[in-house]
Amino acid sequence: MIDVKNLKKSFGSHLVLNGIDQHIHPGEKVVVIGPSGSGKSTFLRCLNLLETPTSGSITFEGQEITAPKADIDAIRRQMGMVFQHFNLFPNMTIRRNITLAPVRTRLMSQAEADDTATALLKRVNLEEKADAYPAQLSGGQKQRIAIVRALAMKPKLMLFDEPTSALDPEMVGEVLAVMKELAEEGMTMVVVTHEMGFAREVGTRVLFMDEGRILEENEPRAFFASPKQPRTIDFLSKVL
């Protein structure tokens, strides 16, 4: 589904991604972990070109998205993204947050989008918040709305950038539950997170990144039971 070849990214003279090769298959739930500053978020943001790679190539379903002529808006419509700080639009009601993109990109009519929004909100038990503004919601509610907003575009792939890091501990569960449900439905997911429990339970593959490289990858059970690299062992001993 996504093919990443020798991806490099530097900010000025600082090399953040130092040659990443990855292939993500449909239906996979890839969990990216690693210490802060290891390039996890940058890697994720390169996948939908919120960061422009310095070199290397990314191919999404046969289309090279790093090509200069690629229609980036059309590609982004097929990838949902959830941010650490939710990034809901505070000037709009929840309903409009969800329906704006599908309507403006002519994916749906306003009526269809409204129906979709209602159905999605029902799914995360927030249908009574449709006419509220983001400022009236709790962090956990905002993040569930952000997930729903991305889903309204009917994406083929969902990117999560530390979706629970900015939440109060008691709200982490409700967001993870939504993500878990999404995973069970077969959505392809790439998740940057510090939630090791989620990685173990939901992930089909865990990537450990450090200093802009993928140091180790494995299926979760083996990864957590018997990490091989000394750096991975060191990291896991600190977070588990």
Partner: peptide, 23 residues
């Protein structure tokens, strides 16, 4: 304005002009 607002708009597939106009 938080750059995250522009990023959120663009990540949904809205183009630059629409993101500016509505968000």
């Amino acid at each position: 304005l938080d750059p995250g607002q522009m990023e959120a708009g663009r990540s949904l597939g809205l183009n630059y002009f629409d993101t500016m106009r509505f968000i």
